[in-house]
């Protein structure tokens, strides 16, 4: 099972690496629809190969359970991390959400979520910088990286 998973990930990464640059910058674009079809997650275009990025390890142990391996989230429960300004936009807001958590109604890609994300201030500045860089450059996203210093600044301000 584990091996399968890795194979699928590798394949997805290989596919995305072949995809060339689709969206550039942080512009919102139409999300890649993943409907039914074969088991391999056929994504995405712009992301770099992030399979060895240190943020992936943090993501897999902390975020994946709710936001899923491919960042697609859970309909009606956990918002997707794909192609949304919440992830690829304002870094300070993103860092703050990670540190402090989030509750109450929010809208992500036209869908209302009223769920609860716990705070993750127990993670180090480096872990948060890594994981946020990872999500900003994975799942078809291609936004700038988040540095340890940026996390530190937001943490100190709050």
């Amino acid at each position: 099972m584990r091996i399968n998973k890795i194979a699928i990930l590798l394949l997805a990464v290989a596919l995305s690496a072949c995809g060339g640059k689709g969206n550039s910058g942080q512009q919102q674009s139409e999300p890649t629809k993943q409907t039914s079809g074969n088991a391999v997650t056929e994504t995405k275009s712009a992301s770099a190969d992030m399979s060895n990025h240190p943020g992936k390890k943090v993501y897999d142990s902390v975020c994946l359970a709710c936001h899923m391996a491919d960042g697609s989230g859970v309909p009606g429960m956990h918002p997707p991390l794909i192609d949304t300004d919440w992830v690829t936009g304002d870094k300070e807001r993103l860092i703050k959400i990670t540190l402090e958590g989030l509750s109450g109604k929010i809208e992500v890609k036209g869908e209302v979520y009223n769920s609860l994300m716990p705070p993750h201030s127990h993670l180090s500045d480096k872990q948060i910088a890594d994981v946020l860089t990872y999500i900003r450059k994975s799942f078809g996203n291609n936004a700038s990286e988040v540095t340890k210093e940026e996390v530190q600044n937001v943490r100190n301000d709050s």
């Binding site: 699928i8 993943q34 409907t35 039914s36 079809g37 074969n38 088991a39 997650t41 899923m68 391996a69 491919d70 697609s72 989230g73 859970v74 309909p75 997707p80």
Partner: peptide, 14 residues
């Protein structure tokens, strides 16, 4: 219902 097998991410279910 899901229209796909296996369902890796919940959102894959149609």
């Amino acid at each position: 219902f899901a229209g796909t097998e296996p369902v890796n991410s919940t959102g894959d279910a149609e």
